[in-house]
Amino acid sequence: MESNKRSLAKAVSWQLVGLVTMAILGEAFTGSFFAGSELALTSCAIGFVMYILHERVWAGIRWGLKKASAAASQPASPAPTGS
């Protein structure tokens, strides 16, 4: 399971990509950098919250996950040393 800090870092990095993309698209469609930026910031804020909620919900769903085998979860024993 991911830590809350990891989920937050992923959400921030993803939203930065989305913010830049939306600002460019917003400017292209509206012809105004400021209108495009407002659209991008609104989308970013909503998307940020929704992404974190989405990740946390999926972190609690066990469907589709495979359990680690007992052998895989135990540390490997050190190789014998021959003398």
Rank of each mutant, 00 (worst) to 15 (best):
E2D: 15
S3K: 05
S3N: 04
N4C: 15
R6G: 10
S7G: 14
L8P: 00
A9F: 14
A11D: 00
A11C: 14
V12I: 13
V12H: 12
S13F: 11
L16K: 11
V17F: 09
G18P: 01
G18Y: 02
G18I: 08
G18F: 08
L19T: 05
L19D: 01
V20H: 07
V20Y: 06
I24A: 05
L25M: 13
G26I: 02
G26Y: 00
E27C: 03
E27N: 02
A28S: 13
F29H: 06
T30V: 02
S32C: 11
G36K: 00
S37L: 13
L39K: 00
L39S: 03
L39Y: 06
A40E: 01
L41W: 06
T42A: 14
C44H: 02
A45T: 14
A45W: 07
I46V: 15
G47F: 04
G47Y: 02
F48M: 00
E55S: 07
E55F: 05
R56T: 10
V57R: 03
W58G: 05
A59Q: 12
G60N: 12
I61L: 10
I61K: 08
R62V: 12
G64K: 04
K67V: 13
K67E: 15
S69W: 07
S69Y: 05
S69M: 10
A71V: 06
Q74L: 15
P75W: 07
S77L: 12
S77C: 11
A79S: 13
A79K: 14
G82F: 12
